[in-house]
Design a protein around this nucleic acid. Sequence first.
DNA 1: ATTTTTATAGATCAATCGATCAACAAGAAT
DNA 2: ATTCTTGTTGATCGATTGATCTATAAAAAT
Lengths: 221, 221
Amino acid sequence: MLIGAKRGVEMDKPVERAPVAAATRDARRRLPPGERRQQIVDGAVAFFAEVGLEGNTRDLARRLGVTQSLIFRYFATKDDLIEAVYEQVYLERLSPDWPDRLTDRTTPLRDRLLDFYTQYSALIFQSEWMRIFMFSGLAGAALNRRYLQQLSGVLLKPLLAEVADAATRGPTPTMEDIWNLHGGIVYIGIRQHIYGMPCPDDPSEAIERAIDRFLCAFGVA
Amino acid sequence: MLIGAKRGVEMDKPVERAPVAAATRDARRRLPPGERRQQIVDGAVAFFAEVGLEGNTRDLARRLGVTQSLIFRYFATKDDLIEAVYEQVYLERLSPDWPDRLTDRTTPLRDRLLDFYTQYSALIFQSEWMRIFMFSGLAGAALNRRYLQQLSGVLLKPLLAEVADAATRGPTPTMEDIWNLHGGIVYIGIRQHIYGMPCPDDPSEAIERAIDRFLCAFGVA
DNA sequence: ATTTTTATAGATCAATCGATCAACAAGAAT
DNA sequence: ATTCTTGTTGATCGATTGATCTATAAAAAT
């Protein structure tokens, strides 16, 4: 639906131009394979995030300023390209030091939660991540479940232990309680990037209040 | 991806059969237009919920046990069919008596919240609704935003007023706080039907605890 | 300069898509 | 039984899709 208008490929008049160092601009000719591949993946991430994983390769190529056949030089099949998009988007999304900092009891639990969700929300509250995560989830992608299982095991489960340890009143916290805290925060990004609803430009205040309510119910400072 | 296997249309041997009253089974021939249209819409809801709004009309027709061309007898275009799917799914999803019951201060706020979210979750925690809502949201459908705006104006905003009135401590509740409560609950359905994650078969306990935590933070009984 | 390598473009294929149309047949009317 | 209406089918069109192939030209090697 209303993807970019048809535009000429404008390959005439090879205007003289000083050689660019990074070579990310000047989407013209004969890039070293590594760069070209990365350029295609980056473009594909943005493109598929907008129009969905069923967006066609011709529109993607046009947006890249490149022929459609070139894409298939670097990826044997469209599914391979999508797989590369998944890897690019999912890779290293869970910072390896979060588990440690989340369980570091030398700092108050509230601060740990605040730090974690401030950083995590800054990382995932982006159109590309949010939408590709949702598209791939709906498509039943294995990477999606793997990500959530890892999130659960590496971050949320330790988090539950921390909350349980710090709790001074209320019911024994369960995994569902943690998911509820998590979901309520993530839902801000869903409202913004999936539903296109107006949202606070800075979600940190809403996040802080959600965390405080959560801890309050368990009698944590 | 792995939609039903190719199967013959099995229209030979018109096995004698007693005329069925409801006529929902025996997807064979010459249904009155109203019934056939409804059958197509019902099938389309289930079909598009599974494979997405870009599922093709031939697979849908095959699933209905009907020719593809027949679909276009009842819907001039595929977009018209999708529009009918939207109407079918979105129609009357917000019960008209909820606003009144949600603001009926003769019953405790906790009971009202519990009643509302018990019924609401039972209504929307279904694959068809959840997935079509997400598909249409990603597609940028206008109906999607309209629904959320109505939800916000008719239910969540009054709810905010109720919470603000009942609050005895904590910060002044904001709309973002209500969205957080709502999102945390809805996220259960997202985990289940969009991400395909294991979830409690009965979410009412998780919902109850979420509501209690929310009210607790504002000092409501 | 000349040759060699290969990244890229352009043309094109086969499959699939939404959509159309004429012919058929089920069921009501007579 | 015959006619008439119209719900339904099967064949097919034109556009679009992912994917392939060959010719070209940019850049490295000589």
